[in-house]
Simulated assay, not measured.
Amino acid sequence: MTRTIEQTLHIRARPETVWRFFTDPARLARWWGTAELDARPGGTLRVAMHEGPRPVMRGQFVELVPYERLVFTFGWEPTPGAPGLGPGASRVEVTLTPDGDGTTLTLRHSGLPAPLEEETGGGWAHLLPRLGEAAATATD
Rank of each mutant, 00 (worst) to 15 (best):
G102C: 05
L116K: 02
G122K: 10
P78M: 11
G84W: 12
G132F: 13
A35R: 09
H109C: 01
P80H: 02
A35S: 00
L64Y: 03
R130D: 09
R30P: 06
R69S: 10
P87Y: 07
R40D: 00
T23F: 03
G123L: 08
L105K: 07
R12F: 14
A114N: 06
V47L: 05
T8G: 04
A35E: 07
M1H: 12
P55W: 09
V62C: 02
T95G: 10
G81D: 05
W31S: 02
F74N: 04
G132W: 13
T104W: 14
Q7L: 15
R69T: 10
T97N: 00
P41C: 05
T4N: 02
E119P: 00
E77L: 14
T137D: 14
A82K: 03
T34A: 15
A39L: 13
A114D: 10
T103F: 12
R14L: 15
V71F: 13
L112R: 00
L116W: 01
G33T: 01
W32T: 05
P115V: 05
F21I: 11
R108F: 05
A135C: 11
S90I: 07
E16S: 11
F72G: 08
D140L: 15
V92E: 06
T79G: 03
T95N: 07
T23M: 03
G42R: 06
L45T: 01
R108P: 05
E119G: 07
G52K: 13
R3E: 15
G42I: 06
T106D: 02
P78R: 12
G102E: 01
G122R: 09
G111N: 09
L96R: 01
A136P: 03
E68Y: 04
L9P: 07
M57Y: 09
R12A: 15
F72P: 08
G81Q: 07
L112N: 04
T120R: 04
L96F: 02
P129R: 08
G86D: 14
G33K: 01
T103Q: 00
G132D: 01
L127F: 15
F61R: 04
E117F: 13
S110D: 02
P113S: 12
A114I: 12
L112S: 02
A135N: 07
T137G: 14
T44N: 08
R30K: 10
T97Y: 06
M1N: 09
T44G: 10
V71P: 11
L128H: 00
R69G: 03
M1Q: 14
L128F: 01
M49S: 08
D24C: 12
D101I: 14
L105I: 01
M49D: 06
P80W: 11
E51D: 15
